[in-house]
Design a protein around this nucleic acid. Structure first.
Length: 216
DNA sequence: TCATTGATTTGCT
DNA sequence: GCAAATCAATGAT
């Protein structure tokens, strides 16, 4: 257990109040994350990821996410809490950052043991590096294991609701880079966005019914 | 303590 | 298209 509030969090002060930015408005609050993970993964598309740093503001629009849910063998929390995934069992809106190979990946925790992987953002501030792919996204925002456990609702890293109508439909596809449960359509992306990651040829799988429907 | 693995990225063929 | 890079978490010994 890490003692006290995470360094990136604002602490207990203002608990229950929406954390607001003078320009971006109110940050997404606890209730946003405290919903079914696929709903949150879909709803995050178009939202703005913000990090206020001494060097200035870093801002990007979320264009690609993946849901990691309960009873999902690809989920790091599948076998219960460990030292690495401890923050996945924190409150909704907790940040879970882990390292894989030489890079970091960032997730927003929804309910305990479930999270949304932030896979790609479209840069909205100049100087934000390429953020196509979870590793590049973390590099662009300077996220490391030190940020694990931060509170996305009050900390220096926050997410804000879309400031404009969606520029296109959200499509679903199989998740990338996993070996288990590769058939599940738990990847969400803004269709046609050039800022979506493409480690493999981006192709959506035909979805029975409405492709925008989020039901599993 | 040792071996295996990986929610990635990059570079070479 | 494919494999190497490279290291910490994890599970077995």
């Amino acid at each position: 257990m890490r003692p006290g509030p995470h360094p990136l969090s604002a602490g207990g002060r203002g608990a229950g109040r929406r954390s607001a930015d003078p320009v971006l408005g109110p940050a997404l609050g606890r209730a946003f994350y405290d919903r079914p993970t696929t709903i949150v993964a879909r709803a995050l598309i178009g939202c703005r990821l913000s990090r206020s740093a001494p060097e200035g503001l870093r801002l990007g629009r979320v264009v690609e996410t993946e849901a990691y849910v309960a009873r999902d063998p690809a989920n790091h929390a599948f076998r219960g809490p460990t030292e690495r995934n401890r923050s996945m069992f924190g409150r909704p809106g907790t940040l879970y950052v882990y390292r894989i190979h030489q890079v970091h990946c960032a997730n927003a925790v929804t309910c305990p043991g479930e999270a949304v992987l932030l896979r790609a953002v479209e840069p909205l501030t100049v100087g934000l590096g390429d953020a196509r792919g979870p590793g590049r996204l973390c590099r662009a925002f300077g996220l490391t294991r030190d940020d694990d456990g931060a509170d996305l609702t009050t900390g220096g890293l926050r997410i804000f609701a879309p400031d404009q109508p969606s520029r296109g439909p959200v499509v679903r596809a199989p998740r990338v880079g996993i070996r288990m449960a590769t058939d599940r359509l738990l990847r969400f992306a803004l269709k046609g966005s050039p800022y979506v990651s493409s480690p493999r040829p981006w192709r959506t799988r035909p979805v029975p019914g409405n492709p925008d429907r989020v039901d599993r």
